Simulated scan of single mutants.
Amino acid sequence: MLRKLVDNEFTNAATFYIVSLFLLIISPPLLLFKIIYNFLVSFRPTDANMRGKVVLITGASSGIGECLAYEYAKREALLVIVARREQLLQKVAEKARGIGSPDVLVICGDVSDFNDCRRFIDEAINHFGRLDHLVNNAGIGSIFMVNEGIDITKFAPVMDINFWGSIYPSHFAIPHLKKTNGTIIVNASTAAYFNLPRSGFYSASKSAVTSFYESLRAELGPEIKITIVTLGYVESEMTLGKQMSKEGEMKHNQEIKDLVFECFPVMSTEPCAKAIVKGACRGDRWITEPQFMRPFIAFNFFFPELVQWHFKKFYLGKWIAATKAAHK
């Protein structure tokens, strides 16, 4: 029995080292191939013909979602724009029609409500008869430390909107997207990788999004394409300081804007939306904007301790210093 146990341990160890050696040998050429392939793919022409195709965008009343509507309108797509603020949606719809969209359906809806999601997908199908692109863009932010004495139950909407607010529409849209070999575009975040201090709830919601849609890609491909968008700081209501407050309400917080978002370069909304639509029409699996975030994601993968030290030392340190100064 002891001899058999020793033999098994030896076999397992030998297998581990053989597989490790094999991976070390093939990894460099595979990495080089991927870099070259991605470079060449970036020059591949996009499927610019969106005329007559139907695109549903959530969170379309402002920010990235609004600009995504305009980019699709330029391609003469039929639009379904969804958000909770109907008056703003009507303004977006009017401008999108002027840009080139033949028809825009405005639906006031809450992505965190299961039945609401069923309703607006059904309305889109009843109106247009098809669905080609589902853009899960709606999201909210929260910037707090867990030990700041907050009621963490107030932050359930972060997961409800950022995670379930993408899952629910996708669930109801999948049967229709299968008929058109359509695409699901989901707005994730580089926060899923960097895990900034004070962004635990937000980062967790975006990590859940990326994990879920990678699994869904394996389940649905190639019938439905999935494009996961990982964004850094992009101009929006969120980067202007609109965050979830300690009371669980969405409010403008100038202090957060000054201490957080002014520490990092913020990309303009229009070029970001243009890159997302271009990549989605091209069938990209991943889109990262601003593009300079890509090497930082790779660096974080290999040296997470160094990145975490940097954030704790400079980002969190600046916040703590500012907080102390404010209370003197």
Score class of each variant (00 low, 15 high):
residue 17 Y to S: 01
residue 13 A to G: 05
residue 153 T to Q: 12
residue 133 H to R: 07
residue 247 E to Y: 03
residue 312 K to E: 11
residue 19 V to K: 12
residue 213 Y to C: 04
residue 29 P to H: 10
residue 1 M to A: 14
residue 177 L to G: 01
residue 157 P to Q: 11
residue 180 T to H: 12
residue 128 F to R: 09
residue 138 A to K: 03
residue 2 L to Q: 10
residue 76 E to S: 14
residue 140 I to E: 00
residue 107 I to E: 04
residue 79 L to Q: 06
residue 323 T to K: 14
residue 51 R to M: 08
residue 69 A to V: 05
residue 48 A to G: 11
residue 114 F to W: 13
residue 274 K to S: 10
residue 10 F to H: 09
residue 227 T to H: 00
residue 279 G to E: 01
residue 327 H to R: 15
residue 224 I to H: 01
residue 58 T to N: 08
residue 145 M to R: 11
residue 61 S to F: 06
residue 158 V to M: 06
residue 229 V to W: 00
residue 113 D to E: 10
residue 138 A to C: 10
residue 111 V to H: 05
residue 70 Y to D: 01
residue 157 P to F: 11
residue 311 F to P: 00
residue 87 Q to G: 06
residue 251 K to A: 09
residue 303 F to N: 05
residue 43 F to Y: 13
residue 184 I to F: 13
residue 23 L to T: 09
residue 101 S to V: 05
residue 30 L to I: 07
residue 113 D to L: 12
residue 305 E to S: 15
residue 171 H to A: 08
residue 150 I to E: 04
residue 98 G to E: 05
residue 209 V to W: 06
residue 202 Y to H: 05
residue 229 V to M: 04
residue 141 G to N: 10
residue 61 S to Q: 02
residue 323 T to G: 09
residue 63 G to L: 03
residue 91 K to T: 15
residue 233 Y to L: 11
residue 250 M to F: 12
residue 163 F to Q: 04
residue 296 F to L: 15
residue 279 G to N: 05
residue 121 I to W: 01
residue 106 V to M: 03
residue 299 F to H: 07
residue 301 F to L: 10
residue 326 A to W: 02
residue 7 D to K: 15
residue 50 M to G: 02
residue 20 S to A: 14
residue 127 H to Q: 05
residue 48 A to D: 12
residue 328 K to I: 13
residue 262 E to A: 12
residue 327 H to Q: 15
residue 9 E to M: 13
residue 66 E to F: 08
residue 154 K to N: 13
residue 83 A to Q: 01
residue 92 V to A: 04
residue 77 A to L: 04
residue 1 M to R: 14
residue 251 K to H: 08
residue 103 D to Q: 14
residue 133 H to L: 12
residue 112 S to N: 08
residue 277 V to N: 09
residue 267 M to K: 04
residue 230 T to M: 06
residue 292 F to H: 14
residue 260 V to P: 03
residue 280 A to V: 03
residue 249 E to F: 12
residue 288 T to M: 11
residue 312 K to L: 14
residue 48 A to C: 08
residue 271 P to R: 05
residue 117 C to V: 10
residue 67 C to I: 00
residue 214 E to R: 11
residue 138 A to P: 07
residue 188 A to V: 00
residue 243 Q to F: 03
residue 41 V to Y: 15
